[in-house]
Design a protein around this nucleic acid. Structure first.
Lengths: 244, 244
DNA sequence: CTCCGAAATTGATCTGTGTCAAAGAGAGGA
DNA sequence: TCCTCTCTTTGACACAGATCAATTTCGGAG
C-alpha cells in the first residue's frame, strides 16, 4: 500500500485527508461539485444523536466534540474533532452521538447520497476512509485505557500531551524554545473528556503546576518547560503509544 | 447502499461477514485460495502489541480479547472478539494491541499482502470492512461512556446484557423461557474489560444476584429472569444504545 | 468419590475522586 | 472605570471502589 499523499483541495484552507488523499484530478473535481461549507458558533450543536445525518464532511477550522449523555445528565465526550478530522458515516442514516462546536467552527460538507455514490465508483475513497476509521478506532482504544485505568493526574497529563502533539503536527511550527499550547476546552469539557469532574481537573492542573510540570499563562494557555517530564506523567510507554 | 447479504464461505462453519458479504462468486473463490486456519488454546497469545502482523482474519469459534497493558501492569481490555469479528488492519504493518485467546479459538486467516491486493481490486471488500470498522468504532465509543461514567453495578449489568445480546444474535435460539448465558470470561477478565478490580466485579455480581436481577448456575452461567429489569440497571436509554 | 489448585467470594480498611459550598479571577459590556 | 456573568480555584467532607487478607467454592485429574 503506497504512502498517503495529500492533495490540496481547491478553496479549502486545509488538506482534506478524508477525500483528497491519492485522489486523481477527476475525482477531486467531482467532489468539488458536491461540496459546501457550514459555519457554527461556539456552543452550537451540529447534529443531535439520533437525528438524520444528511451530510458527511470534515472540520476546516475550529474544534467540535462528539458527546454522549445519559438520562440523568452524566456526560462523556467520545471524540474531539480537530481540523482535517472527518465526521459522519457513509451507510448509516442517523447520528449515533451529539456533535457540538466547542469553538467557532467551519466544516466542509458533502451531501451524503452523492458522496456515497461517488464512493462506490471511486475505490480510493473507501480505502482512504477505512484507513482513517481504523486510526480513529485505535485512538478510541487508547482512550479506553485512559478512561479505565489511568489516575486523574495521568489523565490530565495525557490530555495536555495529546493536544500539544496534535497542535504541533498541524502547524508544523515546532518552536525550539519552550512549547506552549492553547487548551481549546473549558475545565468542564476536559472533565467530560477524561471521565472526571471539573473540580478534579482543576485540582490536578494546579498540582502539575505546583510540581513544575507545566505552567499557566491565563486559564487557557499551558507552557511545557520539559516535554519528557510531562510524558512521564502520562503513564504511557515513553516511545510508542498515544496515536491521536 | 444495499442491505448486507451474507454469503456462506465454503468450509467455514460460520458466515464470514468480513469478506463474504455481497461477494460475487469469483471474489469468494479468490478468497478461498488465500485462506487458512489457525487454532489457539485458551490463554495463548495470538499476537503481541508491536509485532509484525502478517495476516488478517476473523474469529470462527471461541473468543479473543484485545488488551493493552501499562508498564506497571495495569491492564485494560479494549475489545472482545466473538465469532465473525474481524481482526487486523489492512495497511498497517504492526499490531497495536495484544490479542489473546480467552477460550480455545479457531481463526480463519488471510495472508495480509494477498488480502490487500484483493482489496484494491475488489471495492466491495473495502466497503464492507469500512462498514464493520465504523460499527466497531461506535461500539468503542459506547464503551468509553461505560468506562468514564458508569458505576460498577451499571458496568456489570451492561456487560451481561451485551454478552446476552451477542449470544442471542449468534445462535438465534431465542428460547421463550428464562434466558441464560455463559460468561466466557473470568472475573479478572471482566474486571479488565470494565476498568474495575476483580473483587469489585465479584461483589457487584453478588449484589445483582441478591437483588434478584440475575441468578447464577455455577460460576460461569448467568440466568436472567427479567431482561428489562437487567437493562434498567445498565443506565442506558431503554430503547436504542449498546450497539455491540 | 476424593483431592488439589485455580477461581471466586467475602470481610476490613484505606484512599482517590466526587460532592457540596464558597470565594477568586477574567473577559466583555455599559 | 466598574459591573456582571461565567469560568476557575480551593476547601471540607463523603463515599465508591481499591487494596490487603482470608476463606470458600468449583471443576478437573486421579
Amino acid at each position: 500500500m503506497q504512502d498517503s499523499v495529500h492533495v490540496q483541495c481547491s478553496e479549502c484552507p486545509i488538506r482534506h485527508r478524508a477525500v483528497c488523499a491519492r485522489c486523481e484530478t477527476d475525482e477531486l473535481s467531482r467532489l468539488e461539485q458536491i461540496k459546501y461549507y457550514r459555519s457554527f458558533q461556539a456552543g452550537q450543536t451540529v447534529v443531535w444523536s439520533g437525528d438524520r445525518m444528511e451530510f458527511v464532511g470534515s472540520v476546516v477550522t475550529g474544534i467540535a466534540a462528539l458527546t454522549q449523555t445519559m438520562e440523568d445528565g452524566r456526560r462523556q465526550m467520545v471524540g474531539l474533532l480537530l481540523p482535517s478530522d472527518f465526521v459522519g458515516r457513509p451507510g448509516r442514516a442517523t447520528a449515533a452521538f451529539d456533535v457540538t462546536a466547542t469553538t467557532d467552527l467551519v466544516m466542509c460538507c458533502f451531501r451524503k447520497k452523492p458522496f456515497e455514490d461517488l464512493m462506490t465508483t471511486t475505490p480510493n475513497i473507501a480505502q482512504r476512509l477505512l484507513e482513517m476509521t481504523l486510526d480513529e478506532l485505535d485512538a478510541a482504544r487508547e482512550w479506553m485505557l485512559l478512561l479505565g485505568r489511568k489516575t486523574a493526574r495521568e489523565k490530565i497529563a495525557s490530555l495536555i500531551s495529546i493536544i500539544a502533539r496534535r497542535e504541533a503536527s498541524q502547524h508544523l511550527r515546532r518552536v525550539t524554545g519552550m512549547l506552549s499550547v492553547d487548551l481549546p476546552l473549558t475545565r468542564e469539557e476536559m472533565a467530560d473528556y477524561l471521565g472526571l469532574t471539573l473540580e478534579t481537573v482543576s485540582r490536578q492542573i494546579s498540582a502539575l503546576k505546583k510540581d513544575g510540570v507545566i505552567s499557566l499563562e491565563g486559564n487557557r494557555r499551558v507552557s511545557i518547560p520539559n516535554l519528557d517530564r510531562l510524558l512521564e506523567e502520562t503513564g504511557d510507554d515513553s516511545d510508542g503509544g498515544m496515536l491521536v
